[in-house]
Amino acid sequence: MDVRTFLFYLFSVVLLFAAFRVITARNPVYAALFLVLTFFQAAGIWMLLRAEFLAISLVLVYVGAVMVLFLFVVMMLDINVDALRAGFWKHFPLAATIGALIALEMAAVLMGGFRPTEEPRALPGAAAAAQAGVQYSNTKELGKLLYSEYLFPLEIAAVILLVGIIAAIALTLRHRKDSKHFDPALAVRVRASDRLQVIKVPPTRPAEPAAAAAATGETKA
């Protein structure tokens, strides 16, 4: 067994263990951390398959952005796990049926084999480079193919992501009637003279004529 085969089996075993712990961990924070470990092992397997772009994309996008966001959301929401597990056995038959159906479909695909009916399509320049014995860059060839033949779907995906970003910002900035908020910039710029006004009041002042006359009449009576 060479080093490449050993690393493949090592990454595969750790990936299967981490994926199993994702669905069996009682703490959602631990489940999210095991999912991060699963992504790292999948990235390692892709590196062994010389798919460097997919491996780096998996680490940067899913581990560096999506899973970190999930982890912060789970930690901030303080989810009550006992309330989520209240109806577990009630929905278990339906979940078991769907899981068995998916397992049968995967078994049918695996038993059928991976023998394609036609030759797989190679990246532009990959076949020529392989015949010439020259090493080529998967990332470079993928970039050429992505920005030439698949440029229109790429632009559509970029517009969809832009709409999602704008929608998230709009939902964040939306003011609710039942929530109190303040501007931190105004709180920092506040001065004592704007909030407190000192009024000088004399210690004594003469009585008004009408009030003095009324008081004198009451005294005489």
Rank of each mutant, 00 (worst) to 15 (best):
F53Y: 10
Y150A: 11
N80A: 05
S137G: 02
E118Q: 10
A214F: 05
T24L: 09
L58P: 00
L37N: 12
P116A: 12
F17T: 10
T117R: 15
Q41S: 13
A211E: 13
A100W: 01
Y30E: 12
K200V: 11
V61M: 01
E218W: 12
E149G: 04
S57Y: 04
N138R: 10
L196N: 08
D178F: 01
L162W: 00
P206T: 04
D178C: 01
D78C: 06
F20R: 13
Y9F: 15
L60K: 04
V81P: 06
L60T: 07
F40K: 12
K144S: 05
L142I: 02
K90P: 05
Y147G: 08
G87W: 01
Y9L: 15
G164L: 06
Q41M: 14
L142G: 02
A192G: 08
A158M: 13
L154Y: 01
L33I: 10
L58W: 02
I165N: 01
I23Q: 15
R121A: 11
V63H: 00
R174L: 06
D194L: 04
L49N: 04
R21Y: 08
P206S: 11
L173M: 05
V63N: 04
S137V: 02
V159F: 05
Q131K: 14
Q41G: 07
P93W: 00
G64L: 00
I45C: 10
D194K: 08
F152A: 12
Q197G: 08
G217P: 00
I23G: 14
L48C: 06
L146H: 03
I102R: 08
V59K: 02
E118R: 09
Y9C: 14
E141R: 15
L16Y: 10
Y147K: 08
T24E: 11
A19W: 09
P202A: 15
P203R: 15
A210W: 14
V134Y: 02
L123V: 04
L104E: 07
A132K: 09
V198I: 11
V63A: 12
W46M: 07
R26H: 09
A96V: 02
H181E: 10
F8V: 09
S179T: 13
G64T: 01
R21L: 12
E141V: 03
Q135Y: 06
I199N: 14
A130M: 06
L7G: 03
Y136D: 00
E218D: 14
F88S: 13
V73D: 13
M47T: 06
Y136N: 01
F11S: 05
I79V: 07
W89E: 13
L94T: 08
R174S: 06
G87L: 06
A107L: 10
E52H: 09
H181F: 04
A51K: 11
G87R: 13
F8P: 00
P93A: 02
Q131A: 15
Y147I: 02
D82Y: 03
G87P: 07
A128T: 11
A213V: 12
H91Q: 12
I169H: 07
A122D: 02
A65K: 12
L33R: 15
